[in-house]
């Protein structure tokens, strides 16, 4: 009998045999979408360098992807990735981390590197909660939700991370949920090829810290909810702000051309060294 092996298995670091994800976690769906995108682009993991921060989502590439991986401090993976990109401009630099890491503690690096439009792909797994530390409120936690740090209900307005990154100047931004793995894979492929700062927000389920404690239910129930709440960019354009409340707008939110920083630096260096550009 021949052995069946997942074609993406070759991307997994040898010797890594178990996952740190809880049952039902969305990390695996996103991990698979990333690896499938790389596979479908006929790329090798050696063409990429991964950086991640702190939190459950940061463990997507670390240690599972058999690639160069820098697992950094909380909130800082994009800042590290900037240095990696400067040193290896020909490589695809990808940051995989969570909403707390990228939008709370690391918010400044997120907006400034979007502004620079430095070529890198940032994948933000947004589960609207701090999972690893036990279910605390994040800047993405919906108003009114009871978490371990908002036992009487969350009282803060939330970030729309994708819109934040668009406003900051990124050249490619898409949002999907873990209910949309194929669309997500297609957007990751586009993001990888984009000459500029590309950002993908993935609404993902944390059945343990979010589903169980907030009453959203199991992973299956949460995915069903994503399916029901999702509305495409095209459809959303026809709806009023009121209609869009509590909906998830999915799709490619922006895709534009603008000066990319590494390329601009190359031009500047030519000017400075007296070479003709």
């Amino acid at each position: 009998m021949s052995e069946l092996i997942n074609p993406l298995h070759r991307f997994i670091r040898p010797g890594v045999t178990s996952t740190t994800n809880c049952p039902g976690c969305g990390n695996g769906i996103v991990a698979q979408a990333i690896l499938r995108a790389i596979d479908e682009l006929s790329m090798d993991l050696d063409d990429c360098v991964f950086a991640s921060g702190i939190g459950c989502s940061a463990w997507v590439p670390s240690p599972f992807f058999n690639a160069d991986v820098l697992h950094t401090t909380h909130g800082r993976p994009i800042a590290f990735a900037l240095g990696i990109k400067m040193g290896l401009p020909q490589k695809k630099v990808m940051v995989v981390s969570g909403d707390g890491d990228l939008a709370a503690i690391g918010g400044n690096h997120l907006i400034h590197n979007a502004r620079r439009n430095v070529e890198m792909t940032v994948i933000c797994l947004n589960n609207s909660i701090y999972g690893m530390t036990g279910g605390q409120a994040a800047p993405t936690t919906p108003m009114g939700l009871k978490t371990t740090t908002t036992p009487y209900g969350a009282y803060e307005n939330t970030f729309d991370i994708s819109n934040l990154v668009i406003a900051a100047g990124a050249s490619f931004v898409a949002r999907w949920t873990t209910y949309h793995p194929r669309q997500l894979t297609a957007s990751i492929k586009k993001a990888i090829r984009k000459k500029g700062f590309s950002f993908i927000e993935v609404i993902t389920q944390c059945p343990v810290q979010y589903g169980r404690k907030t009453g959203s239910g199991s992973a299956v129930e949460m995915l069903r909810e994503y399916k029901e709440k999702s509305v495409s960019v095209k459809e959303a354009a026809k709806l009023s702000e009121e209609d869009l409340q509590d909906r998830i707008i999915v799709g490619e939110l922006i895709d534009k051309e603008k000066p990319e920083m590494v390329e601009e630096i190359m031009k500047m260096k030519k000017r400075a060294s007296g070479e003709n550009s």
Partner: peptide, 17 residues
């Protein structure tokens, strides 16, 4: 860069290249 946290992070990232 935007702050000194980013400065040290960027140079560490570049050192790894």
């Amino acid at each position: 860069v935007e702050d000194e946290i980013s400065a040290i992070a960027a140079i560490i990232g570049a050192s790894w290249t």
